[in-house]
Amino acid sequence: MHTRALRTTYFPRGNSGNSHRDNWQRFFRRGFNPHPNHLLYSVMGANVAVYALFVLSDAQWKRFNDPRWMRFMLKNFTASWYNLSSGRLHTLLTSSFLHTRVDSLIFNMLTFYLMAPHAIAMLGARTFLALYCGGGLAASAATLSNPSNGASGAVGSTLGFFAAANPHATFSLYFFLPVQAWMAVGGLVAWDAYNTLTSPYSVGAHKSRLSGTLAGVAFAMFRMRAIGPRVPWR
């Protein structure tokens, strides 16, 4: 009843001529509600598929001197001022699924696999997807000065949200060192902030993850402290 009351308050019904808006609201509330496991594996599968496409594009360029596929990847899966000024606004979101190194892909997908189910259980699939995409958008916006990807930021938003919502939850760092969530994420934020200031060659990756992680923390604080209109979790 509480959720229904909230929906009635923030999504009022009536014959006010806003049928198009009402249709989108009904779609958001009921039409798009994937199963948590389907969402989890779909996001991971999209990341793996985009990485595979990047590897093939790189091989095509280096082995056969054919840059067409790499040009396609840069134009459609990296966020930059050039892409935005060219009208490719979708890159702010699609860059959230691009990795350019296999070690980064493995680390991010392992983190996502461990953290995402808990966040989905708390938020519901639809709101979690908004969190993931929001983290990617924050990372893309923070790294527009050079062609970049926001995949680490999107995954970082999941980690940041979980740590802010469950600061004393304990998990095994590197599978053997028990550590509380706030300590692990706090250390990661400090590490990324330090490297953002001191490592010019890797500043993009650290800035991306830092921005996404802070976006996840901000989302958790926003929801828990009820700043602004309260939106139902599910």
Results as ranks from 00 to 15, higher is better:
residue 2 H to M: 05
residue 3 T to D: 15
residue 6 L to F: 01
residue 7 R to W: 12
residue 9 T to Y: 00
residue 10 Y to K: 01
residue 10 Y to M: 08
residue 11 F to N: 10
residue 15 N to S: 11
residue 15 N to Y: 02
residue 18 N to F: 05
residue 19 S to L: 09
residue 21 R to M: 07
residue 21 R to F: 03
residue 21 R to C: 03
residue 22 D to R: 10
residue 22 D to M: 08
residue 22 D to G: 05
residue 22 D to H: 12
residue 23 N to H: 07
residue 25 Q to I: 11
residue 26 R to D: 14
residue 26 R to E: 14
residue 28 F to N: 05
residue 31 G to D: 08
residue 34 P to Q: 12
residue 34 P to K: 13
residue 36 P to V: 15
residue 36 P to C: 09
residue 38 H to V: 15
residue 39 L to P: 14
residue 42 S to A: 14
residue 44 M to F: 00
residue 44 M to E: 13
residue 45 G to V: 09
residue 45 G to T: 14
residue 48 V to M: 13
residue 48 V to P: 03
residue 51 Y to P: 03
residue 51 Y to L: 05
residue 52 A to M: 12
residue 54 F to L: 05
residue 54 F to S: 04
residue 55 V to G: 04
residue 56 L to S: 11
residue 58 D to S: 15
residue 60 Q to D: 06
residue 60 Q to W: 09
residue 60 Q to S: 13
residue 62 K to I: 06
residue 62 K to L: 07
residue 63 R to K: 08
residue 63 R to H: 05
residue 63 R to E: 00
residue 64 F to P: 00
residue 67 P to T: 15
residue 69 W to L: 13
residue 71 R to G: 07
residue 71 R to C: 00
residue 72 F to N: 04
residue 74 L to W: 06
residue 76 N to P: 00
residue 81 W to A: 01
residue 82 Y to A: 07
residue 84 L to Y: 12
residue 85 S to N: 12
residue 86 S to I: 00
residue 86 S to Q: 15
residue 90 H to Q: 08
residue 91 T to K: 11
residue 94 T to V: 05
residue 97 F to N: 07
residue 98 L to K: 14
residue 98 L to E: 05
residue 99 H to S: 09
residue 103 D to Q: 12
residue 105 L to I: 01
residue 105 L to P: 09
residue 106 I to P: 04
residue 116 A to V: 13
residue 118 H to D: 08
residue 121 A to F: 00
residue 122 M to F: 03
residue 122 M to Q: 15
residue 124 G to C: 04
residue 125 A to M: 04
residue 128 F to D: 11
residue 130 A to M: 06
residue 130 A to W: 10
residue 131 L to V: 00
residue 134 G to L: 03
residue 134 G to Y: 08
residue 135 G to P: 14
residue 136 G to E: 01
residue 136 G to N: 05
residue 140 S to W: 09
residue 141 A to L: 13
residue 141 A to T: 02
residue 143 T to W: 01
residue 143 T to C: 02
residue 147 P to T: 08
residue 151 A to F: 02
residue 155 V to Y: 03
residue 155 V to D: 01
residue 156 G to L: 02
residue 158 T to P: 10
residue 159 L to R: 07
residue 160 G to A: 04
residue 163 A to D: 07
residue 168 H to S: 07
residue 168 H to V: 02
residue 170 T to F: 03
residue 170 T to G: 03
residue 174 Y to K: 07
residue 175 F to T: 11
residue 177 L to E: 03
residue 178 P to E: 00
residue 179 V to S: 08
residue 180 Q to G: 03
residue 180 Q to D: 06
residue 181 A to H: 04
residue 183 M to T: 07
residue 186 G to D: 06
residue 188 L to D: 03
residue 190 A to P: 04
residue 192 D to K: 03
residue 196 T to W: 08
residue 198 T to E: 08
residue 200 P to Q: 06
residue 201 Y to N: 12
residue 202 S to C: 02
residue 203 V to R: 15
residue 204 G to E: 08
residue 205 A to G: 13
residue 207 K to P: 00
residue 209 R to S: 08
residue 209 R to W: 00
residue 210 L to F: 15
residue 211 S to H: 06
residue 213 T to C: 11
residue 215 A to L: 04
residue 217 V to K: 14
residue 221 M to L: 11
residue 222 F to Q: 14
residue 222 F to E: 09
residue 224 M to L: 09
residue 226 A to E: 14
residue 226 A to D: 13
residue 230 R to E: 14
residue 231 V to W: 07
residue 232 P to K: 05
